[in-house]
Design a protein around this nucleic acid. Structure first.
Lengths: 251, 251
DNA sequence: TCGGTATGTTGATGTGGATCAAATTTTCGA
DNA sequence: TCGAAAATTTGATCCACATCAACATACCGA
């Protein structure tokens, strides 16, 4: 079976000399913070984004309650964000991949409001928030784009609320797969074959389901010929079929 | 029974001359957009926020898909925001009261992503978004505060995801009542006695429950001596008891 | 390479909240 | 003020998903 590990592909292309690569030459610049800036503006942005940070699988990029002063752009890898309760129960609030921005939850109270955990060895670009504010006063394109990124996060969460509030298990999982597929495609990976980074439990937590339900629903999808699934590997066979489940809603 | 209508109280204080009132003299300035600005800065903000708009009960402030160019600050009244599905099902994504900001979902795509519906006769201050961007380049306090407002919206939605993902019906409703109570208190209203603006169905939609479940759960709370409830009127009798339900979670 | 732990699958059973139903109260336009 | 429509309450029943359980497989550090 042709398993594609969607997150490592880019890493192999990194050479040592590229480690000091800046936004200007970053292949993520169209979907990341510099989106929509001209090259002169990106050069200015580069004065700001000069530190990278590696986060190993299982480690936290940041944790609830920590002092906030940095926004992160995922350079490579895969993260989950989660809110944890006193009693130990937690809820995964999102998954982040290359080009996506992490840490905006921290701005409001100058403290992070969730944990960001790497689900595989990952790398992020650090954006000092104070400097981002300063520079975005001069670069209206950056200001505008940053606002858009925050706004889209609000809209994304609206979608998750819809998912959790009104959708049934099959709809939720179909929505999850289609969303993942679409984001992978936007990054130049195959939208039809990929490895899942999160466990069944993490997917379940995100979707408001138990891991057994996630597993059973995957199996049912496979049985119906919508997907092939072997542990972490997923091949989407019938996109239209998944879309139908997702959009059906008329139970 | 001493019913307090939390949203009309302020309106009676409005005289015609006050209709051109600006942020400088607005009693909401501590919790609204001008929060944290000095009086000189607020004066500048006032050049921007000069239009009010009345929205009658049941009417939309804005609707999904409409062109976005304005952010709104609720001056008086009460709104729900909701996402609607093709098949007619919808999900209430939030309730907004005086001093809260509406419309940030529109920034990302320059189109509104939900409907904002007044649940009672309401009034909003209109903030042209383009001008807000401009002015917040000069007023760092405004820039910072606007970012905080967006960030807090992200965090709020995180909380709703938790609520929808892991909490049981009683916990959800207790969380809802306590949240409402706390926001009313911050606005100078009684945190223990108020009228609900949303219907059971709207509350249920927000909490991912059916209206019958909301009604039953209210009744159970009343039976347990936690609250008194008579249609829209709520009196919280045992705050600690509600907190216990909300924080318990260890079903 | 081995062995223990984490993860995933599948079956049997239980239950919280949904659904269906019917009566009551409130709201609001004519 | 009246009457229809909307909102609320409460009971009976149902079902999607949770829970409990047992086993299979994958992963990872020694």
């Amino acid at each position: 079976m042709n398993k594609v590990d969607f997150s490592r592909q880019r890493q192999v292309a990194l050479t040592l000399s590229e480690l000091k690569v800046a936004c200007q030459t970053c292949n993520l610049r169209e979907i990341c913070l510099p989106a929509g800036l001209n090259s002169e503006e990106i050069a200015q942005l580069d004065q700001l984004v000069n530190i990278r940070r590696k986060v190993r699988k299982g480690d936290a990029l940041y944790r609830t309650g920590e002092q906030f002063d940095t926004i992160y752009a995922v350079r490579s890898g895969f993260f989950k964000t989660r809110v944890t309760w006193e009693d130990g129960r937690d809820q995964v609030t999102g998954f982040s991949m290359a080009g996506e921005i992490l840490g905006m939850d921290g701005i409001g109270q100058a403290k992070f409001h969730c944990d960001a955990i790497a689900l595989e060895d990952s790398e992020v670009c650090c954006v000092p928030y104070g400097r981002l504010e300063e520079i975005s006063r001069e670069l209206t394109g950056l200001q505008r784009h940053f606002h858009k990124v925050m706004s889209r996060e609000i809209v994304r969460e609206n979608g998750v609320m819809m998912l959790l509030g009104v959708m049934r298990a099959e709809e939720r999982l179909a929505a999850f797969l289609l969303n993942l597929s679409q984001r992978l495609e936007a990054r130049g990976f195959s939208p039809l074959e990929f490895n899942l980074r999160p466990t069944r439990e993490e997917i379940g937590s995100y979707l408001g389901l138990k891991l057994e339900t996630v597993s059973r629903t995957f199996s049912r999808f496979a049985q119906q010929g919508l997907i092939e699934i072997d542990q972490k590997f997923v091949r989407i066979i019938d996109v239209a079929g998944l879309r139908k489940i997702y959009a059906h809603h008329t139970h």
